[in-house]
């Protein structure tokens, strides 16, 4: 018999996996099998809180934000100085991206470990 790891509550304390509600919403919203309420018997119309699906619709606001971001690039920066600054910017981005993937790959393992430890402890 397979024992499924349907773990217990206490979301906030369960590590990195639950730290980003936005990720949860993006992952599960409007996904999964839909049971046809007209065919299935006993479907209850329970009240669901409205969850905003984050979708990207380009608008004038979008354009203005992009324009502002482009203009920000120049702040306090002449053409001559742009190159060193650019290099600096890229170096810091590398570091940041490295951290991100490191957390991810490591995070996945950590998450599994957390799960199995939780199971053993039977909390």
């Amino acid at each position: 018999m397979t024992s499924a790891v349907a773990t217990t509550g206490g979301a906030a304390g369960s590590g990195d996996s639950s730290s980003d509600l936005a990720d949860v919403i993006d992952t599960i919203l409007d996904k999964g099998l839909v049971i046809d309420a007209h065919i299935a018997v006993g479907v209850v119309g329970i009240r669901l809180l409205t969850i905003d699906a984050r979708i990207v619709i380009a608008s004038v606001d979008t354009y203005l934000r992009f324009a502002e971001a482009v203009n920000r690039l120049d702040l306090g920066e002449s053409e001559g100085k742009a190159l060193p600054d650019l290099a600096g910017g890229k170096a810091s981005a590398i570091e940041k991206a490295g951290e991100t993937i490191g957390q991810l790959v490591g995070g996945g393992k950590e998450r599994q470990r957390t799960r199995s430890r939780r199971d053993r402890e039977e909390d």
Binding site: V5, T7, K31, G32, L33
Partner: peptide, 18 residues
């Protein structure tokens, strides 16, 4: 948590039967 151990077909959030 389930899919680590066994296959699962998620039903859409909010599927409630009487």
């Amino acid at each position: 948590g389930t899919v680590i151990e066994a296959p699962v077909l998620p039903l859409r959030f909010g599927t409630v039967l009487a």
